[in-house]
Design a protein around this nucleic acid. Structure first.
Lengths: 148, 148
DNA sequence: AATACTCATGCAACTCTTTGCAAGAGCAAA
DNA sequence: TTTGCTCTTGCAAAGAGTTGCATGAGTATT
């Protein structure tokens, strides 16, 4: 929506870095593949178009893009996945049982962060929280007595 | 405190598994090394005593010990770290700037989890949350106007 | 005590990820 | 345009983490 290629370039260059063709392709790949992509999937995609691009370049640039906040990383289980940083930070609820991924708006966590800021004087600054648990479908019925 | 070797053994065997010497040594290593240890550090420690123990065994058992909830894993940055699961789940605030690690009791997050349960019907079930941000020392003074 | 069964381990090969280094490319100043 | 500087990349090697398979070890049953 609000981000164009020029935006990216400017945002990167403003910090003294460059938007190289490789970085462009990596960003494109993440965009096209949608959320939650692993480095390897991104690498395959990029390599499909430019076979010369090195694996190390992909890894290095994913780090880089996170640093300049164009991309956010999330740790889901043992894998690291990436996605384009939206205008609004958002979060995920992931069901341990069925694997469902539920989006969660930033409003839902802001209160919590504010509370920590107040109680601990610690300013939480996360644009991508991943919470595990049981989704409505997999959750045991709450009314009955709980078996162990 | 409340956990003895026998406790471990029983808890493992109750589920049909075994407390092998390797598992014992891995648990010991995590205990002695304190919180937030990487697999590699654990491996080195274990290997110092029993050189025959294989790296794969360490990784497999860390997974296993998490599964039986004797150990909890946390993802800090790009690394996975492990620690003994205390009687009470607890969480961490980690400063992006200075790397300080601040413990956070479970009470501090319970309200948040309850809120999500209510709003999303999603039952969050995490015994080890890791939140990044700025610690009191590194946090910019809040009274001044904020530079961009 | 012998047998059958399942859990665990070590080994080896493989994949994923990181790092050091030399070469390449863009920008800025002269 | 030439020079110098820093950012980037590819390459190669090393390190970290995973997986399949055959062997070894513990438990329970007969």
């Amino acid at each position: 929506m609000s981000h164009t290629t020029t935006d990216y370039a400017e945002r990167i260059r403003a910090q003294g870095y460059r938007l190289t063709p490789q970085r462009q392709m990596i960003l494109d790949a993440i965009c096209e593949l949608g959320g939650h992509v692993t480095p390897e999937v991104i690498y395959e995609r990029v390599r499909g178009r430019a076979p010369a691009v090195n694996r190390a370049t992909v890894y290095r640039n994913l780090d880089f893009l996170c640093e300049v906040r164009l991309v956010v990383a999330a740790h889901i289980g043992r894998h690291t996945v990436y996605e384009i940083a939206g205008a609004q930070p958002h979060h995920h609820l992931i069901c341990r049982q069925c694997g469902a991924v539920i989006q969660l708006g930033h409003e839902a966590v802001q209160g919590f962060f504010a509370q920590i800021a107040q109680q601990q004087a610690f300013q939480v600054d996360m644009d991508h929280l991943t919470l595990f648990g049981l989704c409505p479908g997999c959750r045991p019925a709450p009314s009955r007595s709980r078996a162990r």
